Amino acid sequence: RHRTTFSPVQLEQLESAFGRNQYPDIWARESLARDTGLSEARIQVWFQNRRAKQRK
């Protein structure tokens, strides 16, 4: 699998969602996937990585 590159618009949507809830449930992730055009799995990994980045 190649590395996913996120567009500025996608990142804005993801960061906005992260600001509201750092642990989105499956319904929120699937909604974000539809809105961004990404797969739910990529959304899930993005949130995992974003939480790890915040802990540093």
Score class of each variant (00 low, 15 high):
residue 1 R to K: 15
residue 4 T to I: 12
residue 4 T to M: 13
residue 4 T to D: 15
residue 4 T to N: 10
residue 5 T to C: 05
residue 5 T to N: 07
residue 5 T to G: 05
residue 6 F to T: 06
residue 7 S to H: 04
residue 7 S to N: 07
residue 8 P to W: 03
residue 9 V to W: 08
residue 10 Q to E: 12
residue 11 L to H: 09
residue 13 Q to N: 10
residue 13 Q to T: 14
residue 15 E to D: 03
residue 15 E to R: 05
residue 15 E to S: 04
residue 15 E to P: 00
residue 15 E to Y: 03
residue 15 E to H: 03
residue 15 E to A: 03
residue 16 S to P: 00
residue 16 S to R: 14
residue 17 A to H: 15
residue 17 A to L: 04
residue 18 F to M: 01
residue 18 F to D: 01
residue 18 F to V: 02
residue 19 G to K: 12
residue 20 R to K: 13
residue 21 N to P: 01
residue 21 N to V: 06
residue 22 Q to K: 05
residue 24 P to N: 05
residue 24 P to Q: 02
residue 24 P to A: 12
residue 25 D to A: 03
residue 25 D to E: 03
residue 25 D to R: 10
residue 26 I to G: 08
residue 26 I to K: 15
residue 27 W to M: 14
residue 27 W to C: 15
residue 28 A to V: 13
residue 30 E to N: 11
residue 30 E to S: 14
residue 30 E to Y: 13
residue 31 S to G: 06
residue 31 S to Q: 04
residue 31 S to A: 09
residue 31 S to H: 09
residue 32 L to H: 00
residue 33 A to V: 06
residue 33 A to H: 03
residue 34 R to I: 04
residue 35 D to M: 12
residue 36 T to A: 04
residue 38 L to V: 11
residue 39 S to E: 10
residue 39 S to A: 10
residue 39 S to Y: 02
residue 40 E to I: 10
residue 41 A to W: 10
residue 41 A to S: 14
residue 41 A to I: 04
residue 41 A to D: 15
residue 41 A to E: 12
residue 42 R to C: 13
residue 42 R to I: 08
residue 44 Q to R: 14
residue 44 Q to Y: 07
residue 45 V to A: 15
residue 46 W to Y: 03
residue 46 W to A: 02
residue 46 W to C: 02
residue 46 W to F: 03
residue 47 F to N: 01
residue 48 Q to M: 07
residue 48 Q to G: 07
residue 48 Q to A: 15
residue 49 N to E: 14
residue 49 N to I: 04
residue 49 N to C: 09
residue 50 R to S: 03
residue 50 R to G: 00
residue 50 R to C: 05
residue 51 R to C: 06
residue 51 R to S: 04
residue 52 A to D: 08
residue 52 A to E: 12
residue 52 A to K: 11
residue 52 A to R: 10
residue 53 K to G: 12
residue 54 Q to W: 09
residue 54 Q to E: 09
residue 54 Q to H: 07
residue 54 Q to G: 12
residue 55 R to Y: 14
residue 55 R to Q: 06
residue 56 K to C: 06
residue 56 K to I: 10
